[in-house]
Structure formats: structure tokens, C-alpha cells
Nucleic acid binder design. Structure first.
Length: 277
DNA sequence: ATGTCTGTTATAAT
DNA sequence: GATTATAACAGACA
């Protein structure tokens, strides 16, 4: 499901339904979700309290007492929700954290792509994609000179470039299409061939659009819900993603859907022409 | 039914 | 390295 705005929305929900709770038991129904030895994972966390939940890119960082951090990535369809201990466990609920207050936190993941990894706090940057993750998409961390410099070094198409989390953290398929549409950049344009204006617009739009989507509590197009089971509201703000065949909101030209790097990609052929020099 | 599609990324291959 | 294809998995849809 989630790109950065959805993960941030989940994080904020987790602060309310999980932070401050002490773990009394853990049930694991699908062991591959946990990359550690499952028994060691359980023994390390039972008795610990969730102090807070942080986020880096699309990764959630559960901070526990005893200097433990659980890195959790939801991949396509991971979800967290809470219920009273003993509530229904369906076939897609893979991990359940029981709390001493009588509630439990369930991890549900239809496609089973999501992963959790427990490390000592401070070692989270050794986990998976956090090893090479790029700057957060904020004005402070993601600077224009940095963006210019990495674009200049890449010969590949701009859309897969933006999806690569080592360049900038947080964009996924929806927001990549949105910021390219907003910036009038063709998704197949070579990264090192963008004009100065396009680079400035893209930089600006990445920062602003992700922040705006957080305000709307994320985008629900397929299955995303926050920790309370609510849909986001940003799907009504989308201009490109999901609008193939519709008129472009800017010029009225019929929007087109193609495949770029194996991902469905919607754009306006008039506003976002491929510039070949 | 069989093939195509899906908010991702680790891994292998080139 | 940088870039590209594939695998991991389940379900909805035509």
C-alpha cells in the first residue's frame, strides 16, 4: 500500500494505539514476516514497552525500552490495527503483539511482502534499504544542489530514478506520477536531460506534494487504511495516477497510460512531451 | 480460465 | 557502480 504520506499517517495512528503499551505476549502466524529468529524476537520484546514510533522514508521504527528498535516496512499491503486481546485473527494476520492493558496490535498483510527486523537502537541503518536510503523529502534534507548533482550523473529515465529510494526517500508509484505531471516532465525523460526549470519545479513539487498528502492523511486507491481503519482523503487530489483516459486537468488532452520500468505510468502527452535533443 | 493488474524492494543479472 | 529484470505473494478483474 503505502508511500511516505501513508506511512506517516500510520505512524501517527500507532502513537495513539501502541505507544506507551507494554508487551505481554507475541503470536507469530507467518514466520517470514520477521527476519530475526522468531523465538529470539519474541523473547527480546516480551516485557518491553513501546516508547514511541519514528519513521525514516517508508520505514517505521518502533522504539522499545531496553534500547531495542523494530524496523517495520509495510511494502504493498501491510497494515496495523488494534483490537481487544482474543479478537478475530484472519488468515492475513501474521503477527500479534498483546499488551498488558488488554488490547493487542495486529499486523495484517495480504501479500506477505512486509518485513520486521529487531536490532539494537542505533543499528537500524544496517537494515535493508536503510543502508542506502536518500534524504527525507524536506527542504532541509533534500536540497536543490544535491538534486541537480545526482540528476546530472544519471542516464536512466526520470521516473525509475525518482522511485529509487537512494536518491530521495518516500516517493512511490502514485506520487512519482503526480510530481512528474505537476512539473510537466515526461516519465521517460533521461534524468540528466531535464531543464533547470524542470529540476526546480520537480524539487519543489516533491517536497510540497508529499507534505500536502500527509495533511490529507494519505491516498486510498486500493486498500490503504490508517490504524483506525479509515481511508485517506488525498485520492480526490490526484491529477495523473488513476486518470488514464480522462482529460488532463490542465489542457484537456486525453491522459495516457504506459509501462515504465514495469510500473504503470499515467501522464499527459501534451503537457509532458518527451524532449529529444 | 488464464493473463493482467496492483501505494515495494531485495536480489540477481547485465 | 548504475541500471534492469525478476521474485516474493494474494486477490481482483476482464
Amino acid at each position: 500500500m503505502p508511500e511516505l504520506p501513508e506511512v506517516e499517517t500510520v505512524r501517527r495512528g500507532l502513537l495513539k494505539i501502541a505507544a506507551g503499551r507494554k508487551i505481554s505476549g507475541i503470536d507469530v502466524y507467518y514466520g517470514k514476516t520477521i527476519t530475526n529468529d522468531v523465538e529470539k524476537f519474541r523473547q527480546a520484546l516480551i516485557g518491553q514497552t513501546i516508547v514511541t514510533v519514528d519513521r525514516r522514508g517508508k520505514y517505521l521504527l518502533f522504539r522499545f525500552t531496553n534500547d531495542l528498535t523494530m524496523v517495520s516496512h509495510l511494502r504493498m499491503e501491510g497494515k496495523y490495527f488494534n483490537q481487544p486481546i482474543g479478537g478475530p485473527i484472519d488468515k492475513h494476520t501474521h503477527v500479534v503483539f498483546e499488551f498488558t492493558d488488554g488490547s493487542e496490535l495486529c499486523y495484517h498483510d495480504t501479500r506477505k511482502f512486509g518485513r520486521m527486523t529487531l536490532v539494537k537502537t542505533g543499528e537500524e541503518m544496517t537494515v535493508g534499504g536503510l543502508k542506502t536510503i536518500g534524504p527525507e523529502p524536506t527542504a532541509n534534507d533534500f536540497t536543490l544542489p544535491y538534486f541537480k548533482a545526482i540528476l546530472a550523473k544519471s542516464r536512466g529515465k526520470i521516473k525509475p530514478f525518482l522511485l529509487n529510494q537512494r536518491h530521495v526517500a518516500g516517493l512511490g508509484n502514485i506520487y512519482a506520477d503526480e510530481v512528474l505531471w505537476m512539473s510537466k516532465v515526461n516519465p521517460e525523460q533521461p534524468a540528466n536531460s531535464l531543464t533547470d526549470q524542470q529540476i526546480r519545479d520537480l524539487h519543489d513539487n516533491i517536497i510540497k506534494e508529499l507534505a500536502r498528502a500527509i495533511e490529507y492523511k494519505g491516498t486510498t486507491v486500493h486498500s490503504f487504511t490508517n490504524a483506525f481503519g479509515d481511508a485517506g482523503a488525498f485520492q480526490n487530489q490526484l491529477n495523473a495516477y488513476g486518470h488514464a483516459g480522462d482529460p488532463c486537468p490542465r489542457c484537456g488532452t486525453k491522459m495516457v497510460k504506459i509501462k515504465v520500468a514495469q510500473r504503470g505510468t499515467t501522464f499527459c502527452p501534451h503537457c509532458q512531451p518527451l524532449e529529444n535533443d
